[in-house]
Design a protein around this nucleic acid. Sequence first.
DNA 1: GCCTAATTGACAGCATACTTACAATCTGGC
DNA 2: GCCAGATTGTAAGTATGCTGTCAATTAGGC
Lengths: 169, 169
Amino acid sequence: MPSKPAAITMDAVYAAPGYLFRRMQQIAVAIFVEECRAFDLTPVQYAALVSIHTHPGIDATRLSAVIAFDRSTLGNVIERLESKALVERKPAREDKRVKLLYLTKAGAATLREIMPSVERAQARMLQPLKAADRKVLLALMTQLVDLNNEASRVPLRAEDALEHLGKSG
Amino acid sequence: MPSKPAAITMDAVYAAPGYLFRRMQQIAVAIFVEECRAFDLTPVQYAALVSIHTHPGIDATRLSAVIAFDRSTLGNVIERLESKALVERKPAREDKRVKLLYLTKAGAATLREIMPSVERAQARMLQPLKAADRKVLLALMTQLVDLNNEASRVPLRAEDALEHLGKSG
DNA sequence: GCCTAATTGACAGCATACTTACAATCTGGC
DNA sequence: GCCAGATTGTAAGTATGCTGTCAATTAGGC
């Protein structure tokens, strides 16, 4: 007998991995913003600060590869960090196109001070799960993100991007 | 001995659940858009179509609760769907503030036709994992999203939102 | 050495995702 | 039946996240 097409129900949304990822991302951002309200930093801005801290003198294009953010998006993020005086852009001598990124004193201080709040936020996201399940979920997500790296429009290219630097990590 | 604060490395980003969720969401959208390119529908627009199909005559506020999208965001989404002639807005008789949402013929047809592509996309997101791991990840994500529901700015309120309707489910 | 290729940062444009605010409207308490 | 307060849709403002494109600059093939 010919199989009828399945009826379209809300399960086509609720049970879809894509919907769960979107929903969890919304929740994660909400928790982060709540815990870090005192610092007026978004998750993206925080990630940029960490990367510039870890790779001082990196340029915007390489930074976008290191945290897998779109180059255009990152430009705006850096602009905001600069206007908050957390980050400085200095023209590179060897290449007139490039601007090198550095944390200001205030940027380094903010990063140091926000860390406990960030850790609280990250913990809260997984809090509802049992400890063993947290580990499993983290491991599977790490695996999945890694294996799907090329599927995203801006793949993570941590190593490639750092070949020109002292290659600190 | 006093414990030194941990050095800030890129692990503060890469190993953080928030980063993994963001990254996976990026990947999921990229895969969805790629598989559904022929239909010019985003994941959010697809979810809205499914919900309006399942709950014809729903209003925008209730719809936002049913798929946990922000009311403002959803307004723009509906506007775009309307301009593509996939959705109609009709004023409610009993309440002059409310506009009821319906799929057009084209909207229903598009939804019917896009389903195979959506299912391909959803499958691709988890493809790299072993079958058993896919199940585990889906179960844990479902659990986590549910338990964290109240933490998001726009919690899912499927039942509440549908009390006024025929309550089709 | 020169000219094509690629790269870099910037910009414009579209689509989420949130905030606050507002006018129109409805509801409940009295 | 009126009025305070809630609800609905909408709008403006900010922040990702992507697509393009562009000028300036650099690098490579020859």
